[in-house]
Amino acid sequence: MLPPNNMPLGQLAKEEGISVATLAKWRAEARAKGQLLPDANAGPEGWTSQDKLAAVIETASMNEAELAEYCRRRGIYPEQLAVWREACARANDWERAAASRIARETRDDKKRIQQLERELARKEKALAEAAALMILRKNVWSAPLLQVA
């Protein structure tokens, strides 16, 4: 299952006479222990984020020659590792960016709510005035005419 072979589980199961379920279980246990075991049929683009993080951690202290050897064994390019390293470095910034975006949206929402409340109050006041005028107009037309003596 390890690179450079990266044999699919079905093929490995057939060659070794071990069930695919057993191999999948072993791979999951190895991954849980932190070992890098990407899916064989998925290229480096299909690696899980855990696999990519493990590769970044494994290569953090390597010099250029060791890194090149590591990449050859794993079937990846140093540029891919650099992209993954950058993504890992930015991974914790999303929380701060999300928090500032949420704060900005909350501020905008509060302003919009205040504007809508002012508009509603203005319309309620206008409606009350219109109702008062209608009542006054009704009272004027329905009042008996005063007779002058």
Rank of each mutant, 00 (worst) to 15 (best):
R73H: 10
K33I: 03
N92P: 08
E45P: 00
A91R: 08
R73P: 07
G43R: 00
I76R: 00
I76V: 15
A21V: 07
E66Y: 10
G43D: 00
E58R: 13
W84H: 07
E64A: 15
C88Y: 11
E29H: 10
R27V: 15
W47Y: 08
Q11N: 00
Q11K: 02
A40E: 01
Q35C: 13
R31E: 09
L23Q: 03
I76F: 04
P44Y: 00
N92S: 13
S19C: 12
T59C: 06
G34W: 09
E86M: 09
T59N: 01
E45K: 02
L67H: 05
I76M: 10
P38F: 01
Y77R: 15
S61R: 10
L81N: 03
I18K: 06
A24P: 00
R27A: 11
E15M: 01
L12Q: 04
N92E: 12
A87S: 13
A21P: 02
R85Q: 12
P44A: 06
A42D: 11
L53P: 01
R31H: 05
S49C: 08
A82C: 08
R73K: 14
L12T: 03
E86H: 07
D93A: 09
A21Y: 03
E66K: 14
E64Y: 11
T22M: 09
I57V: 15
A32D: 10
S19Y: 08
E16G: 09
G10T: 10
L37Y: 12
L36G: 00
E15N: 00
A82V: 10
A55N: 00
A82E: 10
P44D: 02
R90L: 14
W84Q: 06
E15V: 02
G43S: 00
V20G: 02
G10N: 12
Q11C: 01
A32L: 10
W94C: 09
A60E: 14
